[in-house]
Amino acid sequence: MFRLLKDATVYSPEYLGKKDILLCFDKVALIEDNVNPAGFKDIEIVNCDGKIIFPGFIDLHVHITGGGGEGGFTTRTEEAQAEDILKYGITTVVGVLGADGVTRNMPNLYAKARQLELEGLSTYIYTGSYQVPVITLTGSVQSDMVFVDKVIGVGEICLADSRAFEPSFDEISRIAAQTRNGAIISGKAGLVHFHLGQGESAMEYMFRLSNETLIPKQHILPTHVNRTKGLFNRALEYLKQGGNIDLTAGFIPSGSDPECVATYDALKTIIDNDLDFSGVTISSDAYGSVPTFDENGNVVSSETVNCKILFDEVRTAIKDRGIPVETAISIITKNAAERLKIDNKKGTLQVGKDADCVICDSGLNIVNVISKGKMY
Rank of each mutant, 00 (worst) to 15 (best):
F40L: 02
H63A: 10
G50W: 08
G39Q: 05
D49W: 04
E44H: 12
D49M: 14
G39L: 02
I45G: 03
G50K: 15
C48K: 09
N34P: 02
K27W: 05
N34Q: 14
K27Y: 04
P37D: 07
I43D: 01
H63W: 07
L22G: 03
I52G: 04
G56L: 11
I58P: 07
L22A: 01
A29R: 05
E44N: 06
I31L: 01
V35Q: 06
V46F: 15
K41V: 15
I45H: 00
V35Y: 10
I52H: 12
A29T: 03
N36G: 01
L30T: 01
V28T: 07
E44L: 04
G39D: 07
G50N: 09
F57Q: 07
V35N: 04
N47A: 04
N36S: 14
D33N: 10
I45P: 09
P37S: 02
C24I: 09
G50R: 12
D59I: 15
L30M: 11
N34E: 11
L22Q: 06
D49R: 15
A38N: 15
V62H: 03
F40C: 05
A38E: 14
L30P: 00
V35W: 11
C24R: 13
L30C: 00
H61M: 09
P37F: 01
K27H: 08
P55G: 08
L60W: 02
N36V: 07
N34L: 13
F57E: 04
D42P: 11
I58E: 04
I31S: 03
L60H: 06
N36Y: 00
E32C: 00
I58V: 09
I64T: 12
G56M: 05
C48E: 12
A38T: 07
C24K: 14
I45D: 00
V28Q: 03
F25N: 15
N34C: 11
K27M: 13
N36I: 03
F54D: 02
L30H: 08
V46T: 11
F40K: 06
L22R: 03
H61E: 03
I45A: 02
V46H: 15
L22N: 02
P55E: 10
I43R: 00
L22D: 03
I58Y: 10
D49Y: 05
G39P: 00
A38K: 10
E32Y: 05
F57A: 07
I43L: 00
P55L: 07
I53Q: 09
I53Y: 10
I45Y: 05
D26N: 10
D49K: 13
C24T: 06
A38D: 14
I52K: 11
A29I: 02
I45S: 03
G39V: 02
L23S: 05
P55H: 12
F54L: 11
D59P: 04
